[in-house]
């Protein structure tokens, strides 16, 4: 699980172009949206594509993302359970 969390942090920084943020600055339980990393709605869509492309997980309802993308911890748990 720790490896997956690290991988997710790397992917989020790279794919969402978070130039000024390093892996160490993203806590496992930090909120990704709002006051946390400050991701926006386009980032949420980008994360949905990433789930599909990299982990074979298709979200039929984009609203599901609100819970799944709460934090790195929640994301990693969801991916570990549903990845194909």
């Amino acid at each position: 699980m720790e490896g997956l969390k690290l991988e997710l942090k790397e992917k989020i920084i790279e794919q969402l172009n978070l130039e000024d943020i390093s892996i160490d600055e993203i806590g496992d339980n930090d909120p990704l949206f709002g006051d946390g990393l400050g991701l926006d709605s386009i980032d949420a869509l980008e994360l949905i594509v990433m789930l599909d492309k990299d982990y074979g997980i298709k979200l039929s309802d984009p609203k599901e993302g609100k819970k799944i993308f709460e934090s790195i911890e929640v994301m990693a748990t969801y991916i570990a359970k549903h990845r194909k």
């Binding site: 969402l16 386009i42 980032d43 869509l45 980008e46 594509v49 492309k53």
Partner: peptide
């Protein structure tokens, strides 16, 4: 896999 961040 179209990227929403590019598409906009």
């Amino acid at each position: 896999y179209p990227s929403p961040a590019i598409f906009v």
